[in-house]
């Protein structure tokens, strides 16, 4: 199964201005995984995007990866 924390970190690090301050944690079981992303305060807006466009794209990519494993993955940005 994909390492969802690594997948999310890969996308978020490529996007933010302070990639070294990106922290991603995943918890959960076989079916449901919750991924929490922490970024530098100035990068929160960038990760979310206008009308949530950026975070929705990131969520959709994670959902595509999880679909094959029959898993549900929730991605949240800590504010």
């Amino acid at each position: 199964m994909p390492d969802y924390a690594e997948l999310v970190a890969y996308m978020v690090r490529a996007l933010v201005t302070a990639p070294d301050q990106v922290e991603v944690r995943a918890d959960g079981g076989d079916r449901r995984v919750r991924v929490e992303v922490r970024v530098a305060p100035d990068d929160v807006g960038l990760v979310i995007g206008r009308q949530g466009r950026h975070i929705e794209a990131i969520r959709m990519v994670v959902r595509s990866a999880a679909l094959r494993q029959h898993q549900q993955v929730q991605v949240e940005v800590a504010e």
Partner: peptide, 21 residues
């Protein structure tokens, strides 16, 4: 198929993420 999604929505997300990067 999972990379394309319903009416190409996963495909568009992939494109958004690549352009953001």
């Amino acid at each position: 198929g999972v990379l394309i999604g319903w009416r190409g929505e996963s495909l568009r997300a992939l494109q958004t993420v690549v352009n953001l990067a």
